[in-house]
Amino acid sequence: MRHPHRICLMLALAGLPALAQEGNALTAPGGGWNRAGLVDKSQELAVNYPYNLIDRGAQRGRRMIEGNLGKAGKKRPFHMLVVNGNPTPLYTDDDGRYARAYAFGSGSNSVEVRTPDGKSLKRVQFYEADRSRPQPVIRVIAAWDDNQAEVDLHVVTPDGQHAFWAHPALTNGGGLDADTVDGPGPENFTMTSPQRGLYQVWINYWGNFGGDGYHFDEATRQRPIITSRITLVFNENTTKERRESFVVPLRRIGELTLVKTFKF
């Protein structure tokens, strides 16, 4: 059962511009040379539409991606956030603000905001200089195109452990490092020292949510079929990086789909 503290919390911030411009569309992270220990503000209070991010222990290495898209940011078609080449729909609060957590690895990283027609609104490239930060070897990203839908990523590791919204941190070092059980996607699973063996990746259309919390009313969907995209990234930020993407249609609440099994 989902907890009552996941009811939508909207925080009003004064002085933010109403329209999206290049200068405020992406305010963090900054470009250039970064060192997480000097710029990481993840412990500070932040707005994370539509719920506050909950750190359950698997998210300590996260950084915040933040900005303001103005009044049009919440309406379809959505802007896109592209992190290290991986695009996901960019949902905002009613005033166009967003804050999204991401666990960047060391080395070169990029963050870009694109308009609904695919034009680059703002892009930053930065180099994470802290070599002590864990480097994701397996990353699984799940995103979808209905901001009223609660869709869950599930990953089963070779030792039988199951990472999902109620159990985000695994004892084998894997977990939902930027889990969005408290809001729309993306769901983001990483492992820095993967076990050898068979992995399973599942996607579940759990339900919908609105101003009164979670519910299971199919009629609130914005389109008959929700499109989810699941991306597997191996050896991120290295010369061995490779990725696979899968598009999975979600037609009804409760639908559970095995997206991919793979051996590592």
Rank of each mutant, 00 (worst) to 15 (best):
G37H: 03
L53D: 12
T92H: 06
T88N: 05
V39C: 11
G105T: 09
L13H: 08
H5M: 10
G105A: 04
N34M: 10
G23P: 01
M80Y: 02
L26T: 07
Q43H: 06
N24W: 00
D93W: 05
Q21L: 01
T88E: 03
P29G: 13
G31M: 04
L16T: 11
F104L: 05
G61K: 08
D95H: 06
I7F: 05
L38Y: 11
N109M: 03
P50E: 10
K75W: 02
L38P: 02
L16I: 05
L11I: 14
T88L: 01
Y49S: 15
G96I: 07
L19T: 13
K71V: 09
P17H: 01
N24A: 01
H5A: 07
P4I: 09
A28Q: 14
L53R: 13
G31F: 00
R60P: 01
N109L: 04
I65L: 09
L69K: 13
G96M: 09
G37C: 02
A14F: 07
Y49M: 10
P77R: 04
G105H: 05
E22H: 01
D94K: 12
Q59L: 05
E66A: 13
I7Y: 04
L9Q: 11
V82P: 04
E22G: 01
A36S: 14
A28K: 10
L45N: 08
R2H: 07
Y98H: 08
K74G: 05
A18F: 01
W33I: 10
N84F: 07
D40P: 00
G30I: 08
G67R: 00
K74V: 03
W33C: 02
A28C: 08
C8V: 15
N84V: 08
G96Q: 08
D40C: 11
M10T: 15
E22R: 07
R63M: 15
A25Y: 06
M10W: 10
A99I: 03
L38R: 08
A58F: 11
L9I: 08
Y98T: 08
Q43V: 09
A12Y: 11
R100G: 02
Y51F: 09
N86K: 07
Q59P: 01
A46C: 03
V47M: 06
P17W: 02
V47S: 07
E44M: 09
A36I: 06
R62P: 03
A58N: 15
L81P: 04
M80C: 06
G31R: 02
N52K: 12
K71H: 07
A18K: 00
I7D: 12
R6N: 14
N86W: 03
R97N: 15
N68G: 07
T88Y: 00
R63I: 10
A25V: 12
H3A: 11
S106F: 04
V47Q: 06
G105E: 03
A99T: 15
H3D: 13
P17K: 00
T88H: 05
L9S: 09
M10I: 14
R63E: 14
A99M: 06
H3K: 14
L19P: 01
L11N: 13
Y102C: 12
L45Q: 12
H5Q: 11
